[in-house]
């Protein structure tokens, strides 16, 4: 199967591991990610007011360019922005009209593209039971926690990714790879996000609380889908520290196709 794929800026630079391992791992599972021919930065944050039109246009372009009605995303931020913009497209006529007037496309976007995160792709199109069968290097004995962060989960109604308060999709993924999934309550809280730029202590409080809780629960390593979460978890932890990886690295490792560091 070939799917249209939106990688996003960070995955071309700081988060190469997230991208490369996704491509090779999915390829090993019979899925090819076909990068959109031309894509622009999603803007990293979703503009929440109804009069912000221009900052949502790149998402509309990506939605419009997706083939076969499906667009695969991987970075939490890109997924968040594109999925919410898609929701706006269906719900907000004013936005639809203005964005269309601005883009002047040959064929206007019809709102039918589904935005699918790689985790959702694995869960819904492959299935965790099938994933389990594809594992060649089971991660037996490793105690791994998920750090979901905010952007794939909330607002729950729009993202419709998993239970926003008690998500289980990454835990199921970890178990499918043969490792032990460790849950802890702060896995769905904010990492401190971009505020870390201006005030590291904001991220430190958040990250320390999450890491302390993860360590207490017995986590030995963490995985995430978000480059910003990874940055804060790695660079702004002041007390407990844990190795943090992208979930695709773990996937590639278990499937025996891990790209070099």
């Amino acid at each position: 199967m070939i799917y249209s794929y939106y990688p996003g800026c960070t995955l071309k630079d700081r988060a190469k591991q997230l991208d490369l391992n996704a491509r090779t791992a999915l390829k090993a599972m019979g899925i090819e990610l076909k990068e959109l021919d031309a894509w622009q930065c999603c803007g990293a944050v979703y503009p929440q007011t109804s009069d912000e039109i221009a900052s949502r246009l790149s998402a509309v372009r990506a939605l419009s360019d997706a083939e076969n009605g499906k667009l695969i995303t991987l970075c939490s931020a890109c997924h968040h922005v594109i999925k919410r913009t898609n929701y706006d497209w269906l719900k907000d006529e004013n936005f639809r009209t203005k964005a269309t007037n601005y883009l002047k496309p040959e064929v206007p976007y019809d709102g039918s593209t589904q935005v699918i995160h790689v985790l959702e792709l694995i869960r819904d199109e492959i299935g965790f039971e099938n994933l389990k069968k594809m594992v060649v290097n089971p991660l037996t004995g490793r105690k791994i926690g998920a750090f979901y962060g905010c952007m794939v989960l909330r607002p729950g109604k729009t993202l419709a990714f998993d239970d926003p308060e008690n998500p289980t999709i990454i835990e199921q993924f970890i178990e499918a790879l043969g490792a032990t999934a460790v849950t802890y309550p702060y896995r769905n809280e904010c990492c401190g996000a971009y505020v870390a730029l201006e005030d590291k202590s904001a991220a430190e409080t958040q990250v320390d609380r999450a890491l302390n809780s993860a360590v207490k629960a017995g986590c030995e390593e963490l995985i995430t889908a978000c480059p910003l979460c990874l940055y804060n978890l790695v660079h702004n932890a002041t007390a407990n520290k844990l190795p943090v990886k992208y979930f695709t690295e773990l996937l590639a490792e278990a499937l025996g196709v891990k790209e070099g560091e």
């Binding site: 309550p185 702060y186 809280e189 809780s213 207490k216």
Partner: peptide, 11 residues
């Protein structure tokens, strides 16, 4: 806002 289990305490 939230109840979180930490060891044998509920935060």
């Amino acid at each position: 806002g939230k109840v979180a289990k930490e060891g044998d305490k509920l935060m």
